[in-house]
Design a protein around this nucleic acid. Structure first.
Lengths: 175, 175
DNA sequence: GTCTATACTTCGATAGAC
DNA sequence: GTCTATCGAAGTATAGAC
C-alpha cells in the first residue's frame, strides 16, 4: 500500500509475499474488501494503543503533535482515506475509527485544553482539530517535497506547546 | 477519478466516455501517465486562475479559506496526491505546482499577513500553511463523515477573518 | 484521425481434488 | 488448509489498414 497504493494490492501479490497461492487469499478473506477491512482494523488497534501511550505521556499535546507528523503514518492514513472515498464499507469503518480516536483525545485532554488561552474562542474539540489538522497536512506536504513556511511553523508550535505544557503541569492537581 | 479513484481511470473507460475506441487514448497520450499529467496541467491552470480571482477579491483570506474548504476540489487534490505518491513523474509536476500556488499566495498576501497579530511569532508563509492546512483537512474530515469540533472552528475562524480583513482594509493605502 | 486486430499481463472469484 | 484448474473480464500498449 505504501509503495504503490491500495489499488496495487491484489490477491496475487499478497499471496506472493506470503509464499502461498493466490487463491488462498480468497479462502481467508473471500473478497479484497474484507482483506482491506482486516488490515485496517489491525492497524487501527495499533493506532489506538499508540495514542493511549501518547495521551498518558508527560506532554500529551506534544506527543499527539509528533504522532500526526509521522510521515509513514500519514501516508498510510491517506491510502485508507483514498480507499474510503471509493468503497463504502471501508468508509464506514474508517469514519467510526476516526471519531473514536478524536473522542479519546477529547476525553483525555479537554481538561488541559480548557486552560489554554485560545479556550476563549475555541472549545477543546476545535483545538484538537486545529492541532492534528496542521501536523497531518504539513507531513503530507513534506512528503510531496514542499517546504515553504514549514520550518518556522514547526518550531513556533513546538515552542508554544512546550511552554504551555510546562506551565500547566504544576497546576494539574488543583483542589 | 472522483467517483472511483485514479486507479479506476483506464484507457478503456476514458475512451468509452468519449465514444471512441480505447486504442485512441494511446494515440493521443501514448501512456496513461501522460494522460494524467495532461489532466493535471489543465486542472492546475484552472486552479491558478481561480486563486488569482480569490487573491484579487475584497477579502482574499476569506476567499482562500473558502477555496480550500471546497469538498470537490479537496477530493480531487487528494486523488492527485495519491497519484503523486506512486508515480514520480506526476509527483514532480504536482510539487512544482503546489509551490507555485503558495508562492503566489505569499506574493499577494504577505503585506496583509504581516499586519496580523500572529506575525509576532509566525511569518506570513507559516500563516498561509496554517490557514490552508486546516481548511483542507476539515474538508477532508467532513467528506469522511466526521464532525467533532468542526462547526465551532469554522465559525470562529470566519469571524476572526472577517474582523481582521475589515480592520486592515482601511489602512491598505498607508503612506 | 480512427479503425480493427492482437499480444501479453493481470485481475477477482469459484469449483473441486487432496 | 492448501493445492490445481479455470472462467471471464479488464488492463496497457503496439502494428497496420483505411
Amino acid at each position: 500500500m505504501l509503495d504503490e497504493g491500495y489499488a496495487a494490492v491484489s490477491a496475487r501479490r499478497v499471496a506472493q509475499k506470503a509464499g502461498l497461492k493466490f487463491q488462498l487469499v480468497h479462502y481467508y478473506f473471500r473478497t479484497m474488501d474484507e482483506l482491506f477491512l482486516e488490515v485496517f482494523r489491525r492497524r487501527a488497534e495499533e493506532g489506538l494503543q499508540e495514542q493511549e501511550r501518547a495521551l498518558a505521556s508527560e506532554r500529551p499535546l506534544q506527543a499527539l503533535w509528533n504522532f500526526s507528523l509521522d510521515p509513514t503514518g500519514t501516508a498510510l492514513t491517506m491510502e485508507f482515506v483514498g480507499l474510503a472515498n471509493h468503497r463504502k464499507a471501508i468508509k464506514a469503518e474508517i469514519a467510526r475509527y476516526a471519531e473514536l480516536i478524536r473522542a479519546r483525545q477529547l476525553e483525555a485532554l479537554s481538561g488541559l485544553l480548557e486552560r489554554h488561552e485560545l479556550s476563549a474562542v475555541l472549545p477543546p474539540s476545535s483545538l484538537l482539530v486545529l492541532l492534528t489538522s496542521v501536523s497531518r497536512m504539513v507531513a503530507l506536504e513534506q512528503a510531496l517535497g514542499m517546504s515553504i513556511g514549514h520550518a518556522e511553523l514547526l518550531t513556533a508550535v513546538e515552542k508554544h506547546l512546550q511552554h504551555f505544557e510546562e506551565d500547566t503541569k504544576s497546576s494539574d492537581a488543583a483542589p
